[in-house]
Design a protein around this nucleic acid. Structure first.
Length: 275
DNA sequence: AACAAGACCTGCATGC
DNA sequence: TGCATGCAGGTCTTGT
């Protein structure tokens, strides 16, 4: 589920039921996900109030009245299931369950690539999870000039470079393919040779904004019925991702979408449109 | 320093 | 039906 737009969608759904709320009870099942859970996790959360909620890259950050920040990453398969207190259901792979006065929120993650930890707020930026993150793609810090600098001298493919969270923080496998298509850049080009950084930056911002808009629309009316952000994909028209063998959507283009594997991951592109 | 490959997990679709 | 294979929206570690 989780690239930047999906995380943003989950965050927007979480804010009304989590921000400002006291954690009356927290259930922790198992010993951890990608990283072990912190010691005494349930005790350190119980009775604390969630002060603010924000997103950084693909992480959700909840500052707590204890001075710690609850850090959440959805990995590949993480979901937050928001339930009214009178209709709580437990599911397989529910790892942490938060109880607030108005909602019960379950962090469910079958593949367990997700992450949930606590970090002292003043030490957040120096934490290894965050220290090397690049600029937020929707911020002015992600610009043609900054991308040019980040790509300079790099011989890996532009596809792999844009997936690198230290180059830009939040793009994932779907939106890198969509960005390269929108910018007309072939995914195999060595990153350091790509001069179209202005086009790439413009494309990435546009693709992400559209995706956030689509995801947000879906979430609004499903918030209490298993909102999971994945629904957003039903609304967003993808131009290349998962469209191998299908015709290019660009008007007048006779190209057929191809799938290749780069750094172990699928890349989709139109050989006619992307040079 | 930068890069590709492997590792971590479970679930699902496909083909025999 | 069972079984094997390959695939999945991420990121960290390993070895070159």
């Amino acid at each position: 589920m989780p690239e930047l737009p999906e995380v943003e969608t989950v965050l927007q759904g979480l804010i009304p039921v989590f921000a400002g709320q006291p954690l009356r009870k927290v259930e922790v099942r198992g010993t951890g996900l990608r990283l072990p859970f912190p010691k005494n996790l349930a005790a350190r959360l119980t009775g604390k109030t969630v002060l603010t909620l924000q997103r950084r890259a693909k992480y959700i950050l909840a500052t707590l009245s204890s001075g710690e920040t609850l850090v959440l990453h959805l990995g590949m398969s993480g979901r937050l299931r928001i339930m009214p207190p009178e209709a709580v259901q437990t599911e397989k792979h529910d790892h942490v369950v938060f109880h607030t006065p108005n909602a019960v929120i379950a962090f469910n993650d079958p593949r367990r690539f997700g992450l949930l930890t606590l970090i002292a707020a003043e030490r957040l930026v120096e934490n290894p999870l965050f220290a090397d993150l690049g600029p937020e793609p929707l911020s002015p810090r992600f610009s043609a000039a900054s991308l040019k600098t980040a790509l300079a001298g790099r011989r890996t493919s532009i596809k792999a470079a844009l997936l690198d969270q230290s180059v830009v923080a939040g793009l994932g496998n779907i939106y890198v393919s969509e960005t390269l298509f929108a910018a007309g850049v072939a995914p195999t080009r060595p990153a350091g040779t790509v001069v179209e950084t202005a086009a790439l930056v413009r494309a990435a911002k546009a693709v992400l904004r559209r995706a956030i808009h689509a995801g947000g629309t879906t979430l609004r009316d499903t918030r209490f019925r298993g909102a999971d952000g994945a629904l957003g994909y039903f609304q967003l028209q993808l131009n290349v991702y998962d469209r191998e063998g299908e015709p290019c959507r660009r008007p007048g283009c006779r190209g057929v979408i191809r799938r290749i594997v780069q750094a172990g991951r699928s890349t989709f592109y139109c050989p006619q449109c992307q040079k």
